[in-house]
Amino acid sequence: MEYTLDYAAIGKRIRKVRKEQHLTQTELGNRCGVTGAHICHIEAARGKVSLPTLVVIANVLQVSLDELLCDNLVTSKYIYEDELRNLLTHATTKQARLITELARVVLRDEFILRDYEEE
């Protein structure tokens, strides 16, 4: 079984964490021992990030590899739960209500799909 990593998703997660920490690509690159241009390429998925570089980036950003790779992992539900909890913490009451309604729609559609697939 061949599996391809979603490098675009990895890059987006690195960019998200980097921006949350108010780091430029150059600053992150310097801390990781690579160029800012290399970080740019990783974030834009214009190349494949090596495992050693990914580990260094995770350590510099002080996040787990799971957090950077969760879009590629089967058992990453807890990461999404943490993200959702964080979003809800920072949401207004109106936004929280909308997020809840959206979650209900998504879950309802998922159950409908499951029921359809079982027939």
Rank of each mutant, 00 (worst) to 15 (best):
M1P: 03
E2K: 13
D6F: 08
A8H: 08
I10G: 08
I10H: 10
G11Y: 04
K12W: 13
K12Q: 15
R13D: 10
R13V: 02
I14S: 06
K16R: 15
V17F: 07
V17Q: 12
E20T: 10
T24D: 11
T26P: 03
T26L: 07
T26E: 09
T26Y: 01
E27Y: 00
L28P: 01
L28S: 02
L28W: 05
N30H: 09
N30S: 06
R31L: 15
R31A: 13
G33R: 06
G33T: 01
V34L: 06
T35L: 06
T35H: 05
T35N: 05
T35D: 03
I39P: 02
I39N: 03
I39F: 02
H41R: 15
I42Y: 12
E43Y: 00
R46A: 06
G47C: 11
G47P: 07
K48H: 04
V49D: 02
L51Y: 07
T53Q: 14
V55Q: 14
I57C: 09
A58M: 12
L61R: 06
Q62W: 10
S64A: 07
D66K: 10
E67R: 09
E67I: 00
D71F: 15
N72V: 08
N72T: 10
L73W: 09
V74D: 07
S76H: 09
Y78V: 10
I79S: 10
Y80A: 14
E81I: 06
D82V: 14
E83G: 10
E83R: 15
L84W: 14
L84P: 07
L88C: 12
T89H: 11
T92P: 07
Q95S: 08
R97M: 03
T100M: 03
T100H: 04
E101F: 01
A103V: 05
V106S: 14
L107F: 11
R108E: 07
E110G: 05
L113N: 06
L113K: 08
R114L: 11
E117T: 11
E118D: 12
E118A: 13
E119Y: 07
